[in-house]
């Protein structure tokens, strides 16, 4: 940028001071907001993890690592972590495969494509909590369409029984979030070099081989972004499951988020909830810079 280079030497000390003042003034709202609603909560949340603090009594006596001891002694936390990881692994794997397949399917011209594209995106826009309400309408034993449908073909399953509730929640998550992986991968396919696709289509080697040897390698960054964005969201799942089962029956569908919420606001143990949240945070933080780097680089590519 030649003009920049030409001008820089001219900008005097007062000019630079003006820019700094302006920068501070313009950033002030963000600095104030971040101080009150990001930095302070992060610090106080971490501090609460080392205090005895409850819903009713927030005298905040330091109690060392007592919260962590009681967290790891009770099996609730480990169970919630196990369920969350298993659930996330299952839904993300299925959503990646189905989203990829759907993106390949939609990546061509056919009548009605625009309409179906819009329809496919709708589930992403529905509030997960409201979708939970809609699932209850659909799955209710008395008035739900699905039990009625299963009944009419002679299948009578109790959908929310301990045996079927986990697969049910996996299916529901897949219904809502496959459109998301589809969208990310489809956007990636749009920036895919057309000649490469056509060349591999001409090639007699077959669709499957061109898929594994041409499309997947080129799409790797996009697949990576879709995978991690979904994984992060799956790990913090709360709304749908809380509305549908509230973590039950028993604790069989308690995710980490539900566990932390219940520990804080049902058992009233803020200290233990903060300790659990801190453990989750510390486990996730190592992945953050890695993901940020990968995702921001795909963001650049997708725009070009």
């Amino acid at each position: 940028m030649p003009p920049t280079v030409a001008e820089r030497p001219r900008s005097s000390a007062t000019e630079r001071r003006k820019r700094t003042t302006a920068a501070v003034i313009l950033s002030l709202p963000l600095i104030l907001f971040a101080a009150v609603f990001v930095i302070y909560p992060l610090a106080s949340g971490a501090l609460t993890a080392f205090q005895s603090s409850t819903l009713l009594d927030q005298s905040n006596e330091p109690n060392g690592i007592d919260n962590f001891v009681s967290l790891f002694r009770s099996d609730g936390f480990a169970k919630a972590a196990g369920f969350t990881l298993g659930f996330s692994a299952a839904v993300v794997a299925i959503e990646m495969v189905l989203g990829f397949a759907l993106a390949l399917l939609m990546n061509r011209a056919f009548p009605g494509k625009k309409l179906f594209f819009t329809l496919l995106l709708l589930p992403i826009m529905v509030a997960p909590a409201l979708l939970g309400v809609m699932f209850r309408l659909l799955l209710n034993g008395d008035i739900g369409a699905l039990p009625a449908l299963l009944d009419s073909v002679g299948l009578s399953v109790s959908l929310f029984s301990p045996d079927s509730v986990v697969p049910l929640l996996v299916v529901l998550d897949v219904l809502q979030w496959t459109p998301f992986t589809f969208l990310i991968i489809y956007a990636g396919l749009q920036s895919f070099p057309k000649e490469l696709l056509e060349a591999s289509a001409m090639d007699g080697a077959g669709y499957l081989r061109s898929l594994t040897s041409v499309i997947v390698p080129v799409l790797k960054p996009v697949l990576f972004a879709a995978f991690f964005l979904r994984a992060i969201d799956a790990i913090r799942t709360f709304d749908v499951i809380y509305v549908l089962t509230a973590g039950g029956p028993g604790t069989s569908t308690t995710t980490l988020s539900i566990y932390i919420y219940k520990t804080a606001f049902e058992s009233g143990d803020f200290g233990k909830a903060a300790a659990a949240a801190l453990v989750v945070l510390v486990c996730l933080i190592p992945f953050v810079p890695f993901i940020v780097r990968r995702i921001s680089s795909t963001g650049m590519e997708a725009k070009k």
Partner: peptide, 8 residues
């Protein structure tokens, strides 16, 4: 995770 910020 947003849940971390719930208690603070």
């Amino acid at each position: 995770p947003a849940i971390f910020f719930v208690v603070p």
